[in-house]
Amino acid sequence: MGYHHLALAARDMKAIHEFYEGVMGFELVKVEIGPSPEGGWAKHFFYRMEDDSKFIAFWEMHDMPGTENFETNLSKAAGVPDHINHISFDVKDRADLERRRQRWLDAGLDVLEIDHNWCHSVYTKDPNGNFVEFCLTTGSFSDADREEALRALTAEKPAFSKPPTNIQFHKPAAA
């Protein structure tokens, strides 16, 4: 089972659309428009990520009480460092990961690349200020991995994981 959609508030829907359709390559396929139970109204935009069962969606709110100064960055709203709350999308293979990294760079975005030893990721920020990630699983999981994870649930001072194999910061060519 996977999730159907992730829904987030947006302050600048034009910038969100340019990023998620133009840069990420997700297709805007549906909008729902209607009143809000709290007052005001909203547009709910759905971007197809892969097929008609996987979407990322954004709310554009109008005249809704209490939404005048809302924070769109999930981590900032929660009071934690930016990398804590992030959105991670899967890729099918290494070539797809490299293509996604290059697409971000071509769009003028900074990219962080990390080989986590069991997955390989590239990160940038969306117009809401949220870290977005494309991630390729490169390893497999053993019974020992599960046992370690279960022990970590209650460990007061667990051993640190092996550090990433490689961390790179990529700047766009125009920078």
Results as ranks from 00 to 15, higher is better:
Glu148Ser: 12
Ala9Cys: 08
Leu97Ser: 08
Pro65Asp: 04
Met24Ser: 10
Arg103Thr: 14
Arg99Ile: 00
Thr138Ala: 06
Leu105Val: 06
Phe160Ser: 13
Glu133Lys: 08
Ser53Arg: 11
Ala78Gly: 06
Ala42Glu: 10
Asp93Phe: 04
His116Gln: 13
His86Tyr: 09
Met1Leu: 05
Ile87Arg: 05
Phe46His: 06
Thr124Ser: 15
Trp104Lys: 00
Pro127Lys: 07
Ala42Cys: 07
Leu112Pro: 02
Ser121Tyr: 05
Leu8Cys: 03
Lys43Arg: 13
Glu147Val: 01
Pro163Ile: 02
His86Ser: 06
Phe160Trp: 00
Thr67Ser: 12
Lys76Asn: 09
Thr124Pro: 05
Gly79Asn: 09
Asp90Lys: 08
Phe55Lys: 08
Asn128Ala: 15
Asp115Cys: 06
Asp93Asn: 15
Ala155Trp: 02
Ala57Lys: 02
Gln102Arg: 12
Ser121Glu: 09
Asp115Arg: 04
Asp12Ser: 05
Asp52Pro: 03
Val122Ile: 15
Ala9Trp: 02
Lys76His: 10
Gly139Val: 01
Asn117Thr: 09
His170Ser: 01
Arg103Leu: 02
Val122Glu: 07
Gly66Ile: 07
Asp110Trp: 03
Gly139Asn: 04
Tyr3Met: 12
Tyr20Ile: 03
Lys162Glu: 15
Phe19Ala: 10
Ala15Leu: 11
Asp90Asn: 10
Asp52Leu: 01
Pro35Thr: 08
Lys162Leu: 10
Pro158Arg: 03
Thr137Ala: 11
Met49Asp: 01
Pro127Thr: 05
Leu97Asn: 10
Pro65His: 08
Ile167Leu: 09
Cys119Tyr: 10
Ser53Val: 00
His5Asp: 06
Glu113His: 11
Lys162Ala: 13
Ile114Gln: 11
Ala15Asp: 10
Val80Phe: 08
Met1Cys: 02
Asn117Phe: 04
Ser75Pro: 11
Ile87Phe: 12
Ile56Val: 15
Ile33Cys: 04
Leu150Arg: 08
Trp59Ile: 12
Lys171Leu: 12
Ser53Glu: 13
Gly108Lys: 05
Gly79Met: 08
Asp90Phe: 00
Pro65Gln: 07
Arg151Gly: 00
Arg11Glu: 12
His4Asn: 13
Asp82Glu: 14
Ile33Gly: 01
Met49Ala: 11
Phe160His: 09
Ser88Gln: 02
Met49Leu: 14
Val111Lys: 03
Leu112Ala: 09
Ala95Glu: 15
Ser142Gln: 05
His62Ile: 00
Leu109Arg: 12
Glu60Gln: 15
Ala95Leu: 06
Arg101Gln: 14
Met64Tyr: 07
Thr137Phe: 00
Phe55Cys: 09
Phe89Gln: 07
Cys135Ala: 13
Ser53Gly: 13
Ala152Cys: 05
Gly2Arg: 13
Pro37Lys: 06
His17Thr: 12
Ala77Lys: 14
Ser75Val: 06
Thr67Met: 15
Lys54Thr: 11
Glu18Asp: 15
Gly25Leu: 03
Glu98Ser: 08
Ala152Asn: 15
Tyr47Ala: 04
Ala15Pro: 07
Leu28Pro: 03
Asn130Ser: 08
Glu38Arg: 12
Gly25Phe: 01
Phe45Lys: 00
Lys92Glu: 12
Pro127Gln: 08
Lys30Cys: 01
Ser121Phe: 03
His120Met: 02
Thr138Tyr: 09
Met24Asp: 04
Ala57Met: 06
